[in-house]
Amino acid sequence: MMTENNKPILEVKGLKTHFFTKRGVSKAVDGIDFSLHKGETLGIVGESGCGKSITSLSILRLIPSPPGKIAGGQVLFKGKDLVTMSEDEMRRVRGNEISMIFQEPMTSLNPVLPVGEQIAEALRMHQNMGRKAAWEKSVEMLKLVGIPSPEKRAKQEPFQLSGGMRQRVMIAMALACTPEVLIADEPTTALDVTIQAQILELIKDLQNRLGMGVIMITHDLGVVAETCDTVAVMYAGNIIEHAPTEKIFANPRHPYTQGLLDSLPKIHEDQEELQTIEGSVPSPYNMPAGCRFASRCPHQQPICHEKQPELIEQNDGVKVRCWMYTDQWTAKMVKEEAVK
């Protein structure tokens, strides 16, 4: 589905989002780069605290500020930098050209407003629709996302809908103005598996019809495998591996990606013991100077603790941030590796 020759619709360059708190500066997102094309689904995956959600909020500048602040980098949307845009211009992008859906359908809808109004609001604002037209369009959107008797449902308030239906409403709301980018932040994490299957199917279907680019933020590698074209794996505020989905799963390069995949219980095979990753994530207030995974890495070498590796593209297009895949990883080290 990727259109390699086309210009990407969204380009994130060196994005840094830091939180300035009493404890110090938390470098939640610390220099990440990726791009998204029309019709592409990019997965951003990682464990809690890796910065994946902060990344998604940073794109739309929804970071609570203070204490959060975009400390550097660019977010280019169709060539314009969202980071330096005026608040008014930014508002016209949100929900109109770039939309977002969130993890908790239970709490992400306003409890005292009818769901139809919550969809219509965006239409009136961005598309200059009148009350009646906006309402009719929102009923149509509810129908599009597969909500039965949409006329009746539009008048109901969120508490009258199930979790799955609320997430459908969120999707209807996000897509009402036919955005070019949809950011889905853990869209199915709070849902049961059979409902998750419905929602993922729905997002895929609507993407095919409307052609938007999708950023899928998730901790679930299964969801990534089934929905994404490319995957960026995040660890401690960095992207440490970025590759087409098949390649990541078939041949993970970064030791963290390898560890992550190994620690998953497999549904189709039996294992006596699961692989684990020793140690814990470094504090975002006190990041190590070298590779952020070094202290937990089974292959660690002195160089890993001294200097942070760059995210470097290999000849097959896989990008990885690890000294093992650089020239500095000398024959001597490989030998030591083998001895271990």
Binding site: V193, T194, Q196, A197, L200, D220, L221, G222, V223, V224, A225, E226, T227, T245, E246, F249, A250, L261, L264, I267, H268
Partner: peptide
Amino acid sequence: RALLSSIPVPNPEL
């Protein structure tokens, strides 16, 4: 059967 088939499997080849 439906439950088992709904689980996203971390294996894009499958």
